[in-house]
């Protein structure tokens, strides 16, 4: 905490890597556009080739921004969870936020065939999907918070979050069982996660949500540091535990819920990035960790997306699979070397 200078150089490097990854991500895709033209389009806005400009401005740049927001949002929400629950394996899926979003999406896609006539859902578009999954994650979060007000122990809250996750997963299973193949396929596609379907207006909404969540996270930095000692010590240091717990939970809900609503359930980023960040910076101080996970999360997500879009080929891999393929080994590695785990 006494030497911010020590962290300045790795942080600047990280920012540089972020910019490189961002441009790199935009320059690659199913249509091959020369790197120079990409740079021209991004920084000067002039490209001779009209379709190229269209692809870059309406497809690639929004997608890269989405990746940036999704990575940052999930990583920060993961960090908040790990500190609040003092549990290195906590992630956005733990509080039931992601499962809530899945429930919302599942009800919209598959529920309409089940309850046709009873519940007249409109037809499924990106926007209705986003609304349904935000509602889902918000409702689950609300349920968890209602229970949280009755439970003093944060560990119990963690388990309650997992239970809510199980319930929603079970409901999704039942829906999947009774729905038809076409709708099931549509739901499965949603659960793959996607960064590429956002328009500029949806993107600005997501930006707003992530921004509020991030600001709440930044406002909680001091509390998060106190929580490193444990809840009783934090209270003895003058932290209003009940209030700050709510603020942190709301921040996590906005970040993880917002991301899942717009990009689908994306695994492992929230769990793995905080650990990777702690490995680089070797600190527990949230004044450094919070900005670092934001940048690091964005970098990892941009890289995952670059891999997922399989440059110069017409097909795109599901982003959720790529993050899992990269993320699962990290979790295994963490468990294997648990004794030396930086937490």
């Amino acid at each position: 905490m006494d030497k911010p200078l020590k962290y300045r150089i790795p942080f600047l490097l990280l920012l540089l890597v972020l910019v490189v990854c961002f441009v790199f991500n935009i320059s690659l895709g199913s249509v091959s556009i020369p790197f120079k033209d990409t740079l021209n389009a991004v920084f000067y806005g002039n490209v001779q080739n009209e379709p190229w400009a269209y692809i870059i401005w309406n497809y690639r740049i929004p997608k890269a921004f989405t990746a940036l927001l999704v990575g940052s949002g999930l990583a920060l929400s993961g960090l908040l969870m790990q500190t609040l629950f003092r549990n290195p394996l906590a992630g956005p899926f733990v509080l039931g936020i992601s499962s809530g979003a899945s429930l919302g999406a599942a009800l919209l896609i598959m529920g309409s065939s089940l309850f046709s006539g009873v519940l007249a859902f409109g037809f499924v578009t990106n926007i209705t999907l986003a609304i349904a999954s935000s509602l889902g994650s918000f409702l689950v979060l609300l349920a968890v918070m209602t229970v949280a007000s009755k439970v003093k122990d944060t560990m119990a809250l963690l388990i309650i979050g997992l239970m809510f996750g199980s319930i929603t997963a079970a409901v999704v299973s039942v829906l999947s069982y009774f729905t038809n193949a076409e709708k099931l396929q549509q739901y499965v596609y949603w659960s793959f996660g996607s960064l590429g379907n956002l328009s500029w207006s949806q993107l600005s909404l997501l930006t707003g949500i992530i921004l509020i969540g991030t600001l709440l996270g930044i406002a909680s930095i001091k509390t998060l540091n106190a929580l490193l000692l444990g809840e009783n010590y934090a209270r003895s240091l003058g932290v209003d535990l009940k209030k700050s717990r709510y603020i942190i939970i709301i921040a996590m809900g906005l970040l993880a819920g917002g991301v899942t609503a717009f990009a689908g359930p994306i695994a492992f980023i929230g769990l793995a990035v905080p650990h990777l960040t702690r490995q680089i910076f070797n600190t527990t101080d949230h004044k450094i960790l919070v900005p670092a996970v934001l940048v690091y999360g964005a970098i990892i997500m941009l890289l995952c997306d670059t891999v997922a879009q399989l440059p110069n080929s017409a097909s795109v891999l599901p982003i959720n699979a790529i993050t899992s393929i990269l993320g699962a080994p990290v979790v295994i590695w963490l468990l294997v070397r648990k004794q030396k785990m930086v937490f």
Partner: peptide, 17 residues
């Protein structure tokens, strides 16, 4: 304490919160 990955100085500094 919840996290033992703090340095001694970092932990003592938390007392100033």
């Amino acid at each position: 304490i919840a996290s033992k990955n703090m340095t001694v100085l970092e932990l003592i500094s938390l007392g100033r919160q």
